[in-house]
Design a protein around this nucleic acid. Structure first.
Lengths: 240, 240
DNA sequence: CCTCAATATTGAGTGTACTCAGAATTGAGT
DNA sequence: ACTCAATTCTGAGTACACTCAATATTGAGG
């Protein structure tokens, strides 16, 4: 009998000891970080606390996330990924996904729908959200952030797609009417939608933080966000 | 003879010894910070270096700016203030300021004009600019930042004003045409302009940083910025 | 000129994000 | 089983932003 019967039960298709240990450690760190960030906030959580909670040396944490914000991005990536997998499930996508096919509702509504999970999440964890937003828009290029950016890019693509649909509806009259005025004629139509999508994301992140700081006069945040979306939809619709 | 003849030469209208010393110290710190940030960048400048360059104890620096970013904001406030004073000089304002009066040029051009100094500065000092943008949009509420935000608010007001002018031109036809489609009818007209202005600022900050990270495909940044402005102008013009 | 409260300055001390040289572990080759 | 190179882990060490108790400076009132 071989001492390596392990290898039989966990075949070569699965990971070796080392890889498995690594994955477990990664999972522990991820869970610890998630829990601590959630209950004590980003600033009040120290890397050594995370290490202790994950039962790992401090240096090890830095091997999985080179930076405290990177650790946060690792958590965000995991959560966002889980959310994506949960919502993009086949059964639902049949009803919702195809975009143009589901013509039901105003373009702005359909965009609001897209960003609504983001808005909800950011409101729930506003302290973390500030750090996340900061990092998304102005962070340095690092692997975990990159993965979060991929999520953001996908979101922006969906928004852009709906902006395009909206443009199709509103086209003709208005497009023609504003054409001369808009100056920059003859651009690829996708460009305006992409710009609009990025504007919406940046705007939403900024406005949410603004409201968090009480810098929104009387009105509700949703009203402001809605106005923002309406404006971009109108702008993208009118654009040539 | 009085020992206090000083008091005569520097009358009560001027500041006392203490205040003067304080102002001098402040000036030294400001100059040191400005120089060091400019030549070595934000991250690679340490507070102790600033203290040494200003010939002041480290703790003293923190009395004038509670935080390293606050120190940066102090510098930005000073520079922006100087710029404002230089450009808002009476002679020029007679030609440029009144807004609607100077109907020359497209609305988008007139807005691009407004943000052009900001864009130039951010390009020149892109590392610093990232930190500044970060702090403007997502920083914690602190005195120097507050003063910078005042500058930003003023800029946004100017942009909003020009957006309103533009709306006046394009009004009628389009406004009426899109009314039903835009959904949220009967809003105060200023709201859309204010939102648009904030969108432009946030968008410009984000896009500039995006370009800094090489995340802009082929095109020139100016093209992207221009498209952004066009989009908002169109959106604000069409908005009810 | 002296006193004293108010205020400003100082720099050694503290917490914490991050580094890195060595120790430990692994798996492939023999 | 043994060797060895590659990888992973570790935690004491470092740098630096920020604090704070002690000290120095000022100006007003006697």
């Amino acid at each position: 009998m071989e001492t390596r019967d392990d290898t039989e039960l966990a075949p070569s298709a699965t990971l070796g000891r080392r890889e498995r240990a690594k994955a477990e450690k990664r999972a522990r760190i991820l869970a610890a970080a998630r829990a601590l960030f959630e209950e004590r906030g980003f600033e009040r959580t120290s890397m050594s606390e995370v290490a202790r909670a994950a039962d790992v040396a401090e240096g090890t944490v830095f091997q999985y996330a080179a930076t405290k914000v990177e650790l946060l991005m690792m958590v965000v990536d995991a959560l966002w990924g889980a959310h994506e997998r949960a919502t993009t499930t086949p059964s639902l996508s049949a009803f919702v996904a195809p975009g143009a096919a589901t013509a039901g509702g105003e373009t702005a509504d359909r965009i609001a729908e897209l960003i609504s999970p983001l808005v909800t999440a950011m409101r729930r964890w506003s302290e973390l959200a500030t750090w996340v937003a900061r990092e998304i828009l102005f962070g340095a290029d690092m692997p975990h952030r990159r993965r979060v950016l991929d999520h953001v890019d996908r979101l922006e693509e969906q928004i852009a797609a709906r902006l395009q649909d909206g443009r199709a509806d509103a086209s003709g009259a208005i497009g023609a009417a504003r054409d001369g005025a808009t100056g920059t004629a003859g651009e690829e139509p996708g460009a305006a939608a992409a710009t609009g999508a990025r504007l919406i994301v940046a705007g939403v992140l900024a406005e949410l933080n603004r409201s968090r700081q009480g810098r929104i006069d009387g009105e509700d945040v949703d009203v402001v966000l809605r106005r923002l979306i309406d404006l971009v939809v109108a702008g993208a619709g009118a654009a040539r």
